[in-house]
């Protein structure tokens, strides 16, 4: 095991990631800020002098995640595709639990972004509440889980990185160079297929439009996907033809929704 931010002479350097393949990266980090019961009650009621504490701290956390590279010297600037910050008020422990989640398709992980979001959200909670409680403590800031990238998946619960990585290698070896495609509802019945995997090499362009062309190349019946009414979800988020895909992605095609 080596420290990747040190070069051969032991000097700090930024890791060159230009040749790394883009994959989906996700990280979840947690932390908590402990306070007096009366402070927590004021926070819950919205009775603090600086106004809506949680909304402000959430925005602070999201902004911080986007600016992580300005704070941490050797960290790359990332175009995050998702940042969320959630708060849980815990009256039994007199604290606010903070959880941040970051995601992108890219070449470096998003652990630092998730940890920065939690840290700055906690600092903002301190700032917003300090008029009534200076003794608050921020603690337990840690990474809970990360997914994707060369080192694979890791979670605090399963503890050991190597175990989880080897498990991931086994269970994703078949999709590492392919995408999984689902067909749902009426489209599944019309095409007479529920699921298939398409090799990366069979996809002419690395986006949803390319997946459609790759499928049509395999079987002309997939021309049905060119109908404008057919919807698409990339990794369970609604997406358009131009959305960039990565190996291992999950794609679903389906007709207009009719719930409710």
């Amino acid at each position: 095991m080596t420290l990747t931010h040190l070069n051969a002479r032991g000097e700090a350097h930024m890791v060159d990631v230009a040749d790394k393949q883009e994959t989906r990266r996700e990280a979840r980090a947690c932390g908590a800020i402990h306070m007096q019961a009366s402070t927590l009650a004021l926070l819950a009621e919205g009775g603090l002098p600086k106004g809506d504490v949680l909304a402000t701290a959430r925005i602070a956390g999201i902004q911080a995640a986007k600016r992580t590279h300005e704070l941490i010297p050797l960290c790359h600037a990332l175009a995050l595709s998702k940042v969320s910050v959630e708060f849980t008020l815990d009256a039994s422990s007199n604290c606010v639990h903070v959880e941040a989640f970051c995601r992108l398709n890219g070449r470096t992980g998003v652990e630092m972004e998730a940890l920065t979001a939690v840290s700055v959200a906690c600092l903002t909670l301190y700032d917003m509440c300090k008029a009534v409680d200076r003794g608050m403590t921020i603690d337990g800031v840690c990474l809970e889980e990360k997914r994707g990238g060369r080192s694979g998946n890791w979670s605090r619960e399963s503890g050991s990185e190597s175990d989880d990585t080897s498990a991931r290698k086994v269970d994703t070896s078949s999709v590492e160079n392919a995408v999984t495609i689902h067909f749902l509802a009426e489209l599944r019945e019309r095409l007479a297929i529920a699921e298939l995997t398409l090799d990366w090499a069979q996809i002419p362009s690395q986006d949803i439009a390319g997946v459609k062309l790759g499928l049509i190349d395999r079987d002309p019946k997939f021309k049905a996907l060119l109908d404008q009414r057919v919807l698409c979800a990339l990794n369970q988020a609604m997406s358009q033809d131009g959305a960039a895909i990565a190996p291992g992605d999950e794609i679903a095609f389906f007709p207009p929704v009719t719930g409710g």
Partner: peptide
Amino acid sequence: MDTLKTRAPFWK
């Protein structure tokens, strides 16, 4: 309800 009817993936 308006948003669910056009965005949530349910089919009848």
